[in-house]
């Protein structure tokens, strides 16, 4: 008989209670998001779409967070780079493509909003806007209702590092802290707010430090490590469910892409700096881990890449061919009563 040696170490993900299938799904979601994002940039370059904003480099942080939440159960208020996050909680690539092509069938806004402005009642993804951090008080409001109605629901709200300077970030965190609300605030610290580096945005060493002022824990975590992000987010989620209140998590990452397709990032940072961070890309790093623990193999990977390429291709063609909204649709849905 061929007994497994008891000396075999349990893997990091097993220690966190994640199965091989789950970590493989995490990896697949990161890669799917990356392939979508790359296609978005290409479509903008080729003039097929007008604008794209990318989350390249932040996939591990997003997927690590998302896997700690419950799909179609908890509430999500993501920010504009959260493609991997929304994919993880149920949005499809076809839906994202419809959004970047601004087509009528886009479930986020039917082509009304820029890419990255997510919303889907079906998926409990709460409609978002462009002015940064307005979603933070909304998340507190949703969490307040969960508390009032004694529902086992946790709310997620994310935003960037520069955005944590906004008044709504402060007001929303403070409200959630006072009422000990079941909400997890996630700051994706990618070191820049467009061209302005972290050092010119805040004087404190870590965004997580800000939590002290709101009376709840702040946790700084390597955002390039999806398992570590999962671990701290899971703890925050459990704290929230136990009625112990909010947590602020700072996932430390790097924005590998320019701010958006309208930005020339080499005007304010060097190629060397960007290359250094490309070398720390979370996707190859997680891939290596999965190979090391035998979850990923060449054949699994080849199949996965082929599957994802198929998904991206199908979604691109579908969205490209899908009809635009009717011009007069501009007039719809100002009020519930359409006669106004």
């Amino acid at each position: 008989m061929n007994h497994k040696s008891s000396a075999v170490e349990t893997t990091r993900h097993e220690q966190l209670g994640l199965t091989d299938a789950q970590v493989l799904e995490m990896y697949r979601t990161m890669l799917l998001s990356r392939r979508f994002d790359e296609r978005g940039l290409l479509l903008q370059r080729s003039g097929k779409i007008n604008f794209h904003v990318s989350g390249i480099g932040q996939e591990a942080a997003q997927v690590g967070s998302a896997f700690a939440f419950r799909k179609q159960h908890d509430y999500f208020l993501p920010y504009y780079r959260d493609y991997a996050f929304v994919l993880a909680v149920g949005m499809t690539v076809r839906e994202l493509m419809l959004s970047i092509f601004a087509k009528a069938e886009d479930p986020n806004s039917a082509g009304r909003q820029m890419p990255g402005h997510f919303g889907s009642k079906r998926l409990n993804i709460v409609t978002g806007s462009s002015p940064v951090t307005t979603q933070v008080p909304h998340a507190a409001g949703i969490a307040l209702v969960a508390k009032m109605k004694k529902q086992d629901i946790v709310t997620y709200a994310s935003f960037g590092d520069g955005s944590s300077n906004q008044g709504d970030f402060h007001e929303g965190c403070n409200f959630a802290g006072v009422h000990k609300l079941p909400v997890v605030f996630v700051c994706e610290n990618n070191q820049y707010a467009i061209s302005v580096p972290y050092s010119k945005q805040v004087a404190c060493e870590s965004i997580a430090d800000r939590a002290v002022g709101y009376g709840f824990p702040g946790v700084r975590v390597d955002g390039n490590d999806p398992l570590e992000v999962y671990r701290v987010t899971k703890e925050a989620h459990e704290r929230a469910r136990r009625g112990e209140g909010p947590t602020l998590i700072e996932t430390v990452t790097y924005r590998i892409s320019p701010h958006s397709t309208s930005d020339n990032d080499l005007a304010y940072r060097t190629k060397e700096e960007v290359d250094y961070h490309k070398g720390r890309d979370p996707i190859p790093r997680f891939r290596e881990y999965l190979y090391a623990c035998g979850v990923l193999s060449e054949s699994v990977e080849t199949d996965m890449e082929a599957e994802l390429a198929g998904i991206i291709k199908e979604a691109t063609t579908y969205a490209d061919q899908a009809p635009f909204p009717q011009p007069e649709d501009t007039l719809k849905y100002v009020y519930g009563d359409e006669s106004i």
Binding site: T127, P137, H138, G172, F175
Partner: peptide, 18 residues
């Protein structure tokens, strides 16, 4: 509520959406 009008409005908006 705390003395913070944007939160008063924003929390109300969040609650209304659900």
């Amino acid at each position: 509520t705390p003395l913070a009008e944007s939160a008063i409005a924003g929390v109300a908006i969040g609650a209304a959406m659900v």
